Computed example of a mutant assay.
Amino acid sequence: MVLVDAPLWPAHGRRFAHLVSDESLEELHAFAARLGLPPRAFHRDHYDLPDVWWDRAVAAGATPVDPRVLVRRLRESGLRSPRRRTRSTTTD
């Protein structure tokens, strides 16, 4: 199932939602392609969805969920990608 949270996350002068699948990345990529989202909107395990695209995503079949539910379902599916840690450079 494709899930979308509310567009709460500010960036680039607008708000963004997260679009995920709790079944497969293939399902997510296919859904995003049907919407016309560019590949650059994909980040590890989700697409950043601009607020002006939210209604289109829901009309296309994405299920609106609370952000906490979205993360829980992504983790339970095994598709949650851990954040990459950046190496800290210190000089001693």
Rank of each mutant, 00 (worst) to 15 (best):
M1S: 12
M1N: 12
V2N: 07
V2Y: 02
V4T: 10
D5Y: 10
P7V: 04
P7I: 07
P7G: 03
W9K: 11
W9V: 08
P10W: 07
P10S: 12
G13V: 07
R14E: 06
R15T: 11
R15Y: 14
R15N: 14
F16K: 04
A17C: 12
A17W: 07
H18D: 10
L19G: 02
S21C: 10
S24D: 04
S24A: 08
S24R: 06
L25K: 06
E26N: 11
E26K: 14
E27G: 02
L28Y: 05
H29A: 00
H29W: 09
H29C: 02
F31H: 04
F31C: 04
A33Q: 15
R34I: 05
R34H: 08
G36E: 05
P38K: 15
P39I: 12
R40W: 12
A41N: 04
F42E: 11
F42T: 09
F42N: 13
R44F: 09
D45S: 14
Y47C: 04
Y47P: 11
Y47I: 05
D48C: 07
D48P: 01
D48L: 09
L49W: 01
L49K: 02
L49C: 02
P50S: 06
P50V: 08
P50C: 07
D51G: 15
D51K: 11
D51F: 06
V52E: 15
V52G: 10
V52W: 15
V52P: 03
W53C: 07
W53Y: 08
W54H: 14
W54Y: 13
R56T: 07
R56H: 01
R56F: 00
A57N: 02
V58F: 02
A59Q: 01
A60L: 13
A60W: 01
A60H: 04
A60N: 00
G61C: 01
G61W: 04
A62L: 00
A62S: 02
T63C: 10
T63M: 14
P64E: 01
P64A: 00
V65D: 05
V65R: 10
V65L: 09
D66M: 12
D66Y: 09
D66T: 14
D66A: 15
P67S: 13
V69L: 14
L70D: 07
R72E: 15
R72H: 13
R73H: 08
R73C: 04
R73I: 06
L74N: 06
L74H: 08
R75D: 08
R75I: 15
R75L: 13
E76Y: 10
E76G: 10
S77V: 06
G78Q: 05
S81W: 05
S81T: 14
S81G: 04
R83S: 10
R84M: 02
R85C: 06
S88H: 14
S88M: 13
T89R: 15
T89V: 15
T90E: 11
D92Q: 09
